[in-house]
Design a binder for these strands. Structure first.
Ligand SMILES: [Mn+2]
Ligand SMILES: [Mn+2]
Ligand SMILES: [Mn+2]
Ligand SMILES: [Mn+2]
Lengths: 145, 145
DNA sequence: GCGAAAATGAAGCCTAGGCTACACTTTTGT
DNA sequence: ACAAAAGTGTAGCCTAGGCTTCATTTTCGC
């Protein structure tokens, strides 16, 4: 539309895409930390801030801030100088995120992306895969084994 | 690896994934604005801040800040109370981003994602698709027409 | 041409998410 | 048992990217 052709041809469809992408972005950090904390608990029985920071590739106060946000959102609990643990909601999120991550990697590999690259890209991609798209991926993978 | 089995079994491979994802994220905003400004110039001959803001779904000062960053990075130029234009580098970025966006949508649709959903998800996904993955998508689409 | 409307700029506030520096607590080794 | 080392918390700084509010400029209608 050059300016005001029809009252509402588009112009509102465009913004929605970006708004949704921004919403997904705001969950990305939470999702990655939840999954990683769950990994650490499985491996070590607890998740320590220092190791979370190491694996995320950030300084330890950065990890501390992320944990604070997880707690604020009801996804984690912790006490001073003790390990970090996930709430029920946190564990559920971690499980969902881990499954989605795997599906994304599987689909990438299935269409010819090298495994190494698939692992790298999936870490960013996963957070923008909607439920609908995820189900489409799963269906396609089942149909193309 | 419970703690320190082998000197460097892993623990450094994990962080790289997140570091790469963060790097991609820092380019996402620039990419979307460059593409949109290019769209507007093609449609209207120029890109006005108000319309950029409308299409991005943000307030106009937010768009102004984004344009300031584009200028700082050598991707755009503008003068007070006049339209925004792209530099050669900006036009090149826009073209690359537009092509990648289209490829991502095409691949999603090809594996069974509804077009509407593909358009929504692609707006976030595109920024995390590496060159290697993009080429794999293109090859797969050629092989599965 | 001029006044009203629209667009733009500028200032200032907020949160998220990075960082360093430093203080404090816990763990560890002798 | 106690000193050193490791881990953790806190404070404070930075940038990006949202927002509102208000001043200024341009554009438009008459
Ligand atoms: Mn991730
Ligand atoms: Mn992941
Ligand atoms: Mn985008
Ligand atoms: Mn796009």
């Amino acid at each position: 539309m050059t300016s005001a052709e029809s009252p509402e041809c588009e112009g509102h469809g465009a913004a929605e895409r970006f708004t949704q992408a921004r919403a997904a972005q705001s969950m990305a950090l939470l999702e990655d930390y939840a999954e990683m904390i769950d990994d650490l608990i499985v491996e070590h029985g607890e998740a320590r801030v220092t190791e979370i920071a190491q694996r995320m590739g950030v300084a330890h106060p950065t990890a501390t801030k992320a944990v604070a946000r997880l707690k604020r959102e009801g996804l984690a609990i912790s006490r001073p100088y003790r390990g970090v643990f996930l709430t029920e909601a946190g564990v559920a999120l971690a499980a969902r995120v881990r499954a989605r991550h795997r599906t994304v990697v599987d689909l990438l590999v299935a269409v010819g992306v090298p495994v190494e690259t698939a692992e790298l890209d999936a870490e960013g991609l996963e957070h923008y895969v909607s439920e609908t798209t995820l189900r489409a991926f799963e269906a396609w993978l089942r149909a193309n084994p």
